[in-house]
C-alpha cells in the first residue's frame, strides 16, 4: 500500500549505520522489505565512507526498492555511533525511529513485534532483549556468556536500569524521545546503548521489551577483551554518578 507513495512522510524510519557491510546491507534491506510488507517505512543507511563499496550496493538497492524507500545518507569518514544516529535522524521523516545493526545480528523478522508492542502499549521506547524466554544468543563461548551475565548482574543491582538487556541496540523510539536521549548521551560504543536506556528510565519514559534472538556471526571472541571490560566498568561508574 505504501510502495507507490511518492516520497513525503513515513510512519517508521529505520536507521542502519554501516561500515564495510557491502553484502550485509543488501541482505538486511531485502529482509526488512520482506517482513514489513504493509508498513509505511523508509530505510536510512548512514554509511561512514566504507572503502568496500557499500554505497554502490545501496545505490543498486535504490534501483530495486526506490530512492524514497532506501535512503543513502553517507558521511565522509568513520565517526561515532551517536552522531551516526543523529545524522540519520536529521533525514528521517517517520514518527517512530528504529535503530538496528547492519551485520544481521539483529534480524528484521522481529520488526513487526516491535511495532505491535508499541501500538499496544503506547510505549516511548521498545527495546529488544536477548535475556528472556523466546529470546537468545547464538555464537558465544562460555567466557563471553560469563562476562555478559556478570556485567548484567552488576548493572541490574547497582543501576536498576529498567530494562533487562542494556547493551543491545535493536530498539524502536518515538522520534522526539530519541532526539531528547541522543542529545543527553555522551558515551561511546556499547556503553552508549546502556546510557540511552538508563537515561530513558530516569527521564520517566515508558519502556517496553520484546524478545529477540542474536546470532553472532563474527565468531572471534576478540570482540570482548580486557579493554572493553574496563570501558564497561567506567561507563557503569559514570552512569552511577550522573543519572
Amino acid at each position: 500500500m505504501a510502495d507507490d507513495a511518492g516520497g513525503g512522510r513515513r510512519e517508521y524510519s529505520i536507521i542502519v549505520p554501516t561500515y564495510n557491510e557491502r553484502l550485509n546491507v543488501a541482505l538486511i534491506v531485502y529482509l526488512i522489505f520482506k517482513h514489513l510488507p504493509d508498513v509505511n517505512f523508509e530505510i536510512i543507511i548512514v554509511d561512514d565512507g566504507s572503502p568496500d563499496g557499500t554505497q554502490d550496493i545501496v545505490k543498486q538497492l535504490q534501483q530495486v526498492y526506490g530512492e524514497n524507500r532506501v535512503l543513502l545518507r553517507a558521511r565522509l569518514r568513520k565517526l561515532g555511533l551517536g552522531t551516526a544516529y543523529l545524522h540519520g535522524l536529521k533525514h528521517a521523516s517517520g514518527d517512530f525511529v528504529v535503530i538496528m545493526d547492519a551485520d544481521l545480528s539483529h534480524h528484521p523478522k522481529y520488526l513487526p513485534s516491535f511495532i505491535r508492542k508499541q501500538k499496544e502499549t503506547g510505549a516511548d521506547v521498545v527495546t529488544g532483549t536477548r535475556y528472556v524466554q523466546n529470546g537468545g544468543v547464538h555464537g558465544w563461548n562460555l567466557m563471553r556468556k560469563l562476562t555478559s551475565r556478570g556485567a548484567n548482574v552488576l548493572a541490574q543491582t547497582l543501576l536498576q536500569p529498567g530494562a533487562s538487556d542494556l547493551t543491545g541496540s535493536f530498539r524502536l523510539y518515538k522520534r522526539n524521545v530519541l532526539e531528547d536521549l541522543i542529545s543527553s548521551c555522551v558515551s561511546k560504543g556499547y556503553v552508549f546503548q546502556m546510557e540511552m536506556i538508563v537515561r530513558a528510565t530516569r527521564k520517566g519514559y515508558h519502556i517496553e521489551e520484546v524478545p529477540i534472538t542474536f546470532v553472532d556471526r563474527v565468531f572471534g571472541t576478540s570482540k570482548l577483551g580486557g579493554s572493553e571490560i574496563v570501558e564497561y566498568l567506567k561507563g557503569l561508574v559514570y552512569l552511577l554518578l550522573t543519572t
Binding site: 536477548r130 528472556v132 524466554q133 529470546g135 547464538h138 551475565r149 534472538t213 542474536f214 546470532v215
Partner: peptide
C-alpha cells in the same frame, strides 16, 4: 543461575 539458563538459539543460525 544466568549462565545455567542462558537462552541460546542454535536453530536461529
Amino acid at each position: 543461575f544466568g549462565l545455567m539458563f542462558f537462552p541460546t538459539c542454535p536453530q536461529e543460525a
